[in-house]
Design a protein around this nucleic acid. Structure first.
Lengths: 159, 159
DNA sequence: CGAAAACACTTGACGTGTCAACTATTGATC
DNA sequence: GATCAATAGTTGACACGTCAAGTGTTTTCG
């Protein structure tokens, strides 16, 4: 029975085998997400926008003309508020986003996608659809479904 | 036939369904990795070290007394050199790492885990094993194996 | 009603990731 | 053997991400 060496193990040039499936899984998950994140980043680069900024813009587009408060954006991404504030600062500086205090509750700041932001999104949409397919293109539809199921289960376990 | 709403979709409070399995998969992958990354980060926090720093230390421990050049560390993580240089700067400042120019090839900088770094790692090892198990604890061994297989396939496709 | 608690951010400090440009060496070549 | 390309790192500028603390605004409640 010969020694099996997993792909992840080879990648990180590790001599010792993983202590458990769990350890190998965590490493594989984090490394794979990094690879995909970078890939998406490169696709977005020509449009002068980062993955996070793109994400926020998509959320704002989804919110429509009603706008959406800063913290709500943070919930839909996974991030804490401080990051969102500054992300919006940069998007606003680029003219892709508009913000204004909510009249009903002056603690809140409502955020909207500016026209320029919506236009940019439309330019990107096609490329991003292609990028998503490309990113997981090596998996069959069944594999994708299975991957999604497993990932959903992992997140569900964290609460 | 009723409308199915995926967990990811619910999480990001998205009204429109995903355009494709690929899109849903990419979102699930990135979100799940974020969740796990944060979890690992919280486990490490009491030890005054970040996930990346822990990662580098483990790599240095693996390299042993021969040391390992800066760029090689970068290859085993996925990062670019600049990040590694500064990561090492901080670890050296904490006394967890030692660096010196390689006499054979003075362009290289050999890095070693300092004794304090090795001690810290030993203190953490147990907690990290437990954390890995906890992170994927909701999956059966078969599910973990399947997840690893799918993730390996995704990374293999990116090259 | 008025003080205290709860909210919704915002700001500051720091760790990390990326790219581009720069320095120091080493290797390759005519 | 001097020149030029390739290496190995470092540095600067900027986008995030996190935590802790600070600023207004409601809410809650005695």
């Amino acid at each position: 029975m010969r020694e099996e060496v997993s792909p992840v193990q080879r990648e990180i040039q590790q001599r010792k085998p993983f202590r458990s499936r769990s350890q190998e899984g965590v490493v594989a998950l984090l490394r794979t997400a990094d690879v995909v994140r970078r890939y998406i980043g490169r696709v977005l680069e020509p449009y002068g926008i980062t993955p996070q900024q793109f994400n926020v813009l998509r959320i704002l587009r989804g919110a429509g003309s009603e706008g959406i408060p800063t913290l709500t954006i943070g919930e839909r991404m996974i991030e804490e508020a401080p990051g969102i504030t500054r992300l919006l600062d940069r998007l606003e500086a680029k003219g892709l986003v508009r913000r204004e205090r909510c009249p009903e509750d002056r603690r809140q700041v409502l955020c909207y996608a500016a026209p320029a932001g919506l236009e940019l999104l439309e330019q990107i949409d096609g490329a991003m659809d292609a990028a998503d397919d490309e990113a997981l293109g090596m998996l069959s539809e069944e594999d994708k479904t299975e991957l999604i199921r497993l990932l959903d289960a992992v997140r569900a376990g964290h609460r």
